[in-house]
């Protein structure tokens, strides 16, 4: 089973993943990089949760879990009720600009189909976003020194490691203000 892996310690908030996703998906990005406190970037894409609230919330079964473990919205079935948007724990499903259709990361299904990795994975300048076999990814994540493994939502979820930032980058700056 292949999963996404976000190594938050390496994110530089360059937003290449957003621009790449936007390019692959007709002008709308389905990955979001949020900057907390001006210094802590958090890239968020669909976690493809094993316990998937969006799938359960959808009244018309427009959201499906594929054999590869990807959670995919069939947009032609969407009735734009917005329940999946509320149900999603991570805020990665949004209705399109007209408020009509819900959409989210599909792990670049069209790329995986012809053997190419998702666009955000390939473009990421710092290898913050990776994609691979679950066990291998977990081994990689566990091997990172000084990082906390914050999420592995079953075997189909996304693996995330994050840095311990007790003081934060600003406090690390040794001086300057006086």
């Amino acid at each position: 089973m292949n999963v996404l892996y976000l190594d938050l310690n390496r994110c530089i908030y360059c937003r290449a993943c957003e621009v790449a996703c936007e390019r692959e998906h007709g002008g709308v990005s389905r990955i979001f990089v949020t900057l907390l406190d001006w210094t802590e970037p958090v890239p968020v894409a669909c976690r493809h949760c094993e316990k998937h609230p969006c799938v359960e919330a959808c009244p018309v079964d427009a959201i499906e879990v594929t054999d590869e473990g990807a959670v995919i919205i069939h947009t032609n079935k969407c009735i734009s009720c917005g329940l999946c948007v509320i149900a999603c724990p991570f805020g990665v499903i949004e209705l399109d600009k007209a408020g009509k259709i819900a959409d989210k990361c599909d792990l670049c299904a069209h790329r995986l189909a012809d053997g190419r990795q998702p666009a955000c994975v390939l473009t990421c300048p710092t290898r913050c976003i990776q994609y691979g076999e679950f066990e291998e990814i977990m081994a990689r994540a566990r091997a990172k020194p000084g990082l906390t493994l914050v999420s592995a939502v079953g075997e189909t979820g996304t693996v995330v490691t994050m840095p311990d930032r007790p003081a934060g980058a600003v406090q690390k700056a040794t001086s300057g203000s006086d």
Partner: peptide, 10 residues
């Protein structure tokens, strides 16, 4: 190695 920044993507 395939990586591109946002400008490269655009």
């Amino acid at each position: 190695e395939g990586a591109l920044c946002p400008k490269g993507n655009a």
